[in-house]
Simulated scan of single mutants.
Amino acid sequence: MNDVPTADPFRATDWFKSSYSAADNECVEVSCVSAWVGIRDSKALARNLLIVSADSFAHFISSLSVARSGPESLGTAGRADWH
């Protein structure tokens, strides 16, 4: 696995939030840089961000889908599509 990048590459990228987020910007945003995902609090942009591997983030999203829909929601792919 590659070394975890610093926050610098994430500063120049686009950030995305869930379509389920409220209009008052109280949500979590994500950004992808290479094989990494940056996660930040939209109401505290000056704070540090969390950087995880894309595989770990996909597993996390998949686990949310399973918790919501049950294990049968994984299907044959074994994880939810988060792109």
Rank of each mutant, 00 (worst) to 15 (best):
S21E: 02
W82S: 13
H59E: 12
V52T: 06
D55Y: 02
L45F: 05
D3S: 13
G78E: 08
L64S: 11
A54M: 06
T6R: 07
A67F: 08
V30T: 10
L49A: 08
H83G: 15
V33R: 04
T6H: 05
A58E: 02
I51D: 00
E72K: 11
F60G: 03
K43M: 14
V66Q: 07
F57Y: 15
I39V: 15
A22T: 09
R68N: 00
D81S: 15
D55M: 03
T6V: 11
Y20R: 13
D55Q: 00
R68A: 04
G78S: 12
F60Q: 04
D24I: 00
S31E: 06
L50M: 12
R68C: 03
P71Y: 03
N25H: 09
A22M: 10
M1D: 12
F10P: 13
S56R: 14
A7Q: 15
A77C: 08
S18T: 03
K43I: 09
A80E: 09
R47G: 01
A77H: 11
N25Q: 09
N2L: 14
C27V: 14
R11V: 12
V4H: 01
S69P: 00
R40K: 07
T6A: 12
V37S: 04
S18N: 06
R40L: 01
V28L: 03
G78I: 06
